[in-house]
Amino acid sequence: MVVSKHIDKDKKGVSVVDAYIKVENLSFSRGDRVIYDNISLTIPRGKVTAVMGPSGTGKTTLLRLIAAQLAPDNGFIWVDGQDVHSLSRSGLYKVREKIGMLFQSGALFSDMTVADNVAFPMEEHTKLSPSEIKRIASEKLHSVGLRGAAQLMPSELSGGMARRVALARAIALDPELVMYDEPFTGQDPISKGVLVKLIRQLNDSTGITSVLVSHDVEESLSIADHVCILAGGRVIAEGSADEIRASNDPQVKQFLNGEPDGPVPFHYPETSSSEVAL
């Protein structure tokens, strides 16, 4: 296996074979702004991992780097033992077939019905008969409680429903990894509860690896087996939900408790040019 040449165990003693995703010395910047400065983290196989951090720390960017939609300046990302940034276009598309992603906006295809949206990945990547595809799509919709909405268009759905349809679509091909980008943002308490339950259930029943990017502390900690907290371009804490809750690190405490004062600055850093503008 490619990975084992580089590292057998990370600093927390998680074997790389158990790691579905391994991020090593990753650096990434947008223009002059450094998003990640040499970070390393592990996403264990078959568990729910929550990546948390204040808005603007590049949590979504991390998902895009993992899916190789963006290329890092430095460092490596292994997904299931493959260095995704060294793959050819077709190799990368093969890896992506194993990944389901739930986008922040749902990203449903606006020109297809709900049922067609869920059926789409199967039509593209499997040789199943249309009736088989229809049956599976309807099953997946049933699992998110929306079989009755199969013939609606995405524009007729509420935000919470759209995200549940997107979840059904993300799991249509029974992926090994599902990445959730801010699944709870803008959801009412009931939808939030439904999503939390669905994510946990999905993981327990099928044993897939889940990565959850969020800044909703309570929801994320309640379902995550493993938690990473990012701030200021670095990983400030990594461990189980209980370990994170018990952490004494002032940055972690400030984030978990939502305190306005602390080491994480409230003000966006001022540059000399913005001072001149004032």
Binding site: Q69, M101, F103, Q104, A107
Partner: peptide, 13 residues
């Protein structure tokens, strides 16, 4: 609305 990214993520160009 991330539909293009969504296609890419599904391995559809």
């Amino acid at each position: 609305t991330e539909q293009l990214s969504s296609y890419e993520m599904m391995g559809v160009d």
